[in-house]
Nucleic acid binder design. Sequence first.
DNA 1: GGTTGCATGTAAAACGTTACATGATTTT
DNA 2: AAAATCATGTAACGTTTTACATGCAACC
Lengths: 180, 180
Amino acid sequence: MELSPTAYVILGMLAWRPMSGYEIKALVDKSTRFFWAASYGQIYPELRRLAEAGLIEGKASPQGGRQRNVYRLTRAGQRELEAWLGVDAGVFETRDEGLLKLFFAEAGGTEAAILALDSKRREHERTVARLEEIEATGKPEGFALHVLRYGIECNRWQAQWCKRTMRELETEDSNLRRTA
Amino acid sequence: MELSPTAYVILGMLAWRPMSGYEIKALVDKSTRFFWAASYGQIYPELRRLAEAGLIEGKASPQGGRQRNVYRLTRAGQRELEAWLGVDAGVFETRDEGLLKLFFAEAGGTEAAILALDSKRREHERTVARLEEIEATGKPEGFALHVLRYGIECNRWQAQWCKRTMRELETEDSNLRRTA
DNA sequence: GGTTGCATGTAAAACGTTACATGATTTT
DNA sequence: AAAATCATGTAACGTTTTACATGCAACC
């Protein structure tokens, strides 16, 4: 049947408690988004596929006149999730345009490199701030909390690296100017 | 005209020196691949588009009877690259299935979490080894070397985090067992 | 009465990977 | 003679984003 990691995001969240697609999306945006994003355009069709495969079950649960489908994990879905946990992860990918700019910064001189580093630093600091806000307001627990702290620490590390490397480049650059 | 970051990978490499699509792909695999991957299926069509847009120029340069098209950056391409360096980066994304498994590890208990952490740790250690090999054999320099070192240090940090967190979980777990 | 939030969904486009097809040259 | 490397390209497939369309409910 071969499910995508995005499918396991859904199975994993439904293992916590039954939820609607809308709730799943909201939760994703407050949690997995930083290492596995998902849009409505993925979530709703995937819910349908998973239901067809018998891994989840949907039930219409309107709130007043407002449409609502709540899904829950079936036993087969629970087994599928556990099996996935037992095998090594496949995907690990990064797309970092800031690093790309630094990599090619020769074409714009040291100023371009410093610009790229400063922009990347600010990006990571913004992420740290957002994750800290989630930690403070969302009160996550268990392994999810460990993952959240990873996000905070890793982004902090990256921001620090940018600062450190910026200082290095500035020193190198002023040394060059002095000796030139 | 709105180019994708992948297009700038090509422009950036051609700013170093003229190259064929094949060479670009080989270089990508030894450098940007760790923060911006690109396949032949992207590179060859993109070369054609960039040439049509006048940002690069291709010239047939067969080696014996072996077909070969070498591209070089035009002045317009150089300007385009410099303009891109001047604005803040857009894309920063991570897809980390290992973190996803840790995040949902409740469904498999502490063993599942430790499995995920150990697998992720090994993945980062393999990456460090590959990057160190590139550093030793490829002799990169300038900003590219800074980026390579970033890759090494960041993956090392991530491997360390996995180790540390594994230890934490093991201690917590044995404490629970002891007091239970 | 307007904005925000809850709620579901699709269609088109963009992006990216994989597998395939082809063929020359160089190395073992 | 086989295997690896150089070299170009496409087609099919899968993934992901974006924009759009719709409508109820709650709050201000």
